[in-house]
Design a protein around this nucleic acid. Structure first.
Lengths: 211, 211
DNA sequence: ATGCAAACTTGCGCGCACGCACTTTTCCTG
DNA sequence: CAGGAAAAGTGCGTGCGCGCAAGTTTGCAT
């Protein structure tokens, strides 16, 4: 019950943040405004979110982490773990609800929001590690955690590649300086391309536990 | 020449931050103090560092990124890429200079500093991606970037596992909740264990370009 | 029902990150 | 060598993150 109200407040903050951001533009909204719209004090606000951007982005990302983990767990035990992970990730990232896609356009226009959005990929690491550990029956080594973290960063890279064309010019410049040129395609393509190099690592880990 | 003075200021700030942190304790030092000790204004300080912790940690990590990349490039072309990366990483992380190790003890005692220290692993991603791209002759796909980023997070995981025993109890609790129990060993062991699962991915990528 | 303990919220205050406008230094070019 | 442009450093103001010490609500047990 205490937890109920907690989540209600969180949801109110999320929605208020997104609504105000859409109305007045992301830069024209202060924490004070969000808090007021949600009916709490500014101090309470950042008991829930560490930054203004987090609140806005969180309205879009919601609890994607849990959905991805659940989707992987739902796949039959027979399929390759690498495929299960890839499909679950692609599925959950293309299913942006009605309101999700319009908000995404807003996010892609502001650098600060894009970074906050990219930071959410780190959040999938723990749930992913849990479900992978379960599949591999590996509780002793770093294997599951490393694979989970690798997936998280691969997703991040895919999103970066996808957001690139919208980004400003110097960002592309710093990339070219790194010697990396990436043709941007659709989001699912980007995700699959980024996850593909990790498949051999999953296969090896999977074979070690189930020969 | 302009770059010269820039690096000199950076170095002065690094050293001042570390010295003051050791003298008065990391929490007892303000940005103002660091800036004064380095002979610049507080405003200039955070043209160089985004946070107080970054400055302190940076005195230890210096430019480890460049050293790792250089170490990989220095390995003969015959050896497995996975081995080259692993050895280079282990080498550069065990070579903490005279002053490095005493400062590490300080870092491990404060949570904020440990997090800043762990964040430095992200910095090796770009140099690593550059050198891996070079080895793989792969400039079109995400492969090199994904592998580089995976290595970076693997290193982070290894460092987390290594710092764990020093950490507070609830951190260990949240880990157990994730279903992960890791026996902590020496730093080189942790690094090798964390990088091992990625070796198949490197092998596959390497074989694709040089059959 | 009533009291108690834990947890959530709130007001307050300090230091810090960072944008903006300005001064000083450094470098280049005629 | 002089002058001007570019870059580094500085002062100032604003909003924010967060610790601390209350006040308030929730849940449990008596």
């Amino acid at each position: 019950m205490r937890e109920r109200k907690k989540q209600a407040t969180r949801e109110a903050l999320r929605e208020a943040a997104l609504r105000l951001a859409v109305e007045h533009g992301p830069d024209r909204v202060r924490v004070e405004d969000i808090a007021e719209a949600a009916g709490v004090s500014p101090r309470t606000y950042n008991n829930y979110f560490a930054s203004r951007e987090q609140a806005i982005v969180s309205a879009v990302t919601a609890d994607r982490e849990a959905r991805i983990a659940a989707a992987i767990a739902a796949r039959p035990a027979g399929v390759r773990l690498a495929d299960a992970v890839t499909e679950a990730v692609v599925e959950q990232y293309t299913n942006t609800g009605e309101r999700g896609h319009e908000a995404l356009l807003l996010i892609t226009t502001r650098t600060a929001l894009r970074e906050a959005f990219l930071d959410t990929t780190a959040g999938i690491e723990r749930p992913l590690a849990a479900v992978i550990t379960d599949r591999l029956d590996d509780t002793e080594t770093h294997t599951a955690r490393v694979l989970a973290a690798s997936v998280a960063t691969a997703v991040r890279i895919a999103l970066e590649g996808w957001l690139r064309p919208t980004g400003n010019a110097d960002a592309a410049g710093s990339f070219e300086a790194g010697g990396l040129v990436v043709p941007s395609g659709s989001l699912p393509d980007q995700l699959r391309a980024a996850l593909a190099p990790l498949a051999p690592a999953f296969d090896a880990a999977e074979q070690r536990t189930q020969p």
